[in-house]
């Protein structure tokens, strides 16, 4: 697939990373540009480029100043030379053969004891808990990025009827918890403090350090949730 390059802005993220910002939005086309650029730059990577951090609408390139500096002699900063390299690689259309990972279905138990915030969310939105479950499982979601915690998938976008902002005070959230934050839905792979509205829990292991690919979900993947009973959850 050919990718037109949408306008972007480049800024330094400290002295050892640079961010390419495609706009402060959650948008599928923007996210596709992020991943197309990620693949383009990765294919043409240079010594001293350490890694890439793709996010919703930005791509960050981490580099090692000492290694890159060995190639930079014209009085430029390492930052400027990396910036020029990025602009050169992204300045024309390029193709990106996206291998879309298979859709994955994820069982979620929405029973109250695994869903501490579902009642409150339902009440706030004038729905019943059943309706929240119905809406959350009625469509599939795209994994826009992994971040925050190992294997934490940021997915979107949820139906406007169940959109709800983060909580003001972070709570302790248990592994497998499925939550909503604004238009996003996500799953906590590990116990962590967090502000997401927890509406269920999956018995699946989202991150396994013994696996070659430790993260269950990948960016670009489509996820479909389905509801399981408490009994099914406990015997999964």
């Amino acid at each position: 697939m050919k990718y037109p390059i949408i306008p972007y802005r480049i800024f330094p993220l400290g002295d050892s990373a640079i961010t390419i910002d495609f706009g402060n939005v959650i948008d599928e086309d923007v996210n596709n540009s992020v991943f197309a650029s990620y693949h383009q730059l990765q294919q043409h990577s240079l010594p001293g480029i350490i890694e890439f951090i793709p996010a919703y609408s930005s791509l960050t390139v981490c580099y090692d100043i000492v290694t890159v500096k060995k190639r930079v002699h014209n009085g430029k900063t390492v930052f400027e030379s990396i910036k020029e390299w990025i602009e050169d690689k992204l300045h024309r259309q390029f193709s990106f053969d996206e291998t879309v990972p298979a859709e994955i279905t994820i069982p979620v138990c929405y029973a109250a004891e695994y869903a501490p915030d579902i009642e409150q969310l339902a009440r706030t939105k004038g729905l019943s808990a059943e309706e929240v479950i119905e809406i959350h499982t009625s469509k599939s979601y795209k994994v826009y990025m992994l971040g925050f915690l190992p294997g934490f998938a940021y997915m979107g976008e949820v139906d406007v009827r169940i959109e709800m902002p983060r909580k003001q005070q972070p709570q302790n959230i248990l592994p497998g918890s499925v939550g909503i934050a604004g238009k996003q839905t996500g799953i906590y792979p590990f116990a962590s403090p967090g502000g997401w509205q927890i509406i269920g829990r999956t018995p699946l292991k989202l991150f396994d350090i013994d696996n070659e690919n430790p993260a269950l979900l990948q960016a670009g993947q489509t996820v479909q949730f389905y509801s399981i009973s408490k009994n099914e959850f406990e015997n999964y």
Binding site: L13, A17, A55, Y56, S58, T60, G147, F148
Partner: peptide, 13 residues
């Protein structure tokens, strides 16, 4: 107070 969409941070941010 415009909300920021999650993106990369680093050591020292």
């Amino acid at each position: 107070t415009e909300e920021l969409i999650s993106s990369a941070v680093g050591f020292g941010t």
